[in-house]
Amino acid sequence: MKKGNISEIIHIGCMVGIVIMGFTLFILLPKDNISENEKRQLTTSPSLSVESFLNKSYSKQLDLYVNDTFPFREQFIALNSFYNNAKGIRSGTDEIQIYNIQK
């Protein structure tokens, strides 16, 4: 490998660092079973069997499990809601989403 530019190394280091940190914390941190905010049970870790793998139920449940128990989930959800609010201009009365309008 050639000696690369220092900023490129920092770039790779930061991105790979974030991903590996997410990966490590996901493995290490204890998982919640219940979300108080959502008043629901979070997806539990699926059990792997030949059948559950072949009918894709394992992969689907693992996807949900990772999403439900991702490290700092609550904080990420708060960030997402901040991001959604930052997409445009919101005034007090706009906060109510209108779903059905009689035309």
Partner: peptide, 20 residues
């Protein structure tokens, strides 16, 4: 980080169903 937040929130179902 923003993409992670959006992806994590995909499973966010506030008050949609009460399982307990």
């Amino acid at each position: 980080i923003l993409c992670t937040a959006v992806l994590v929130s995909e499973s966010y179902n506030p008050f949609l169903y009460f399982r307990f």
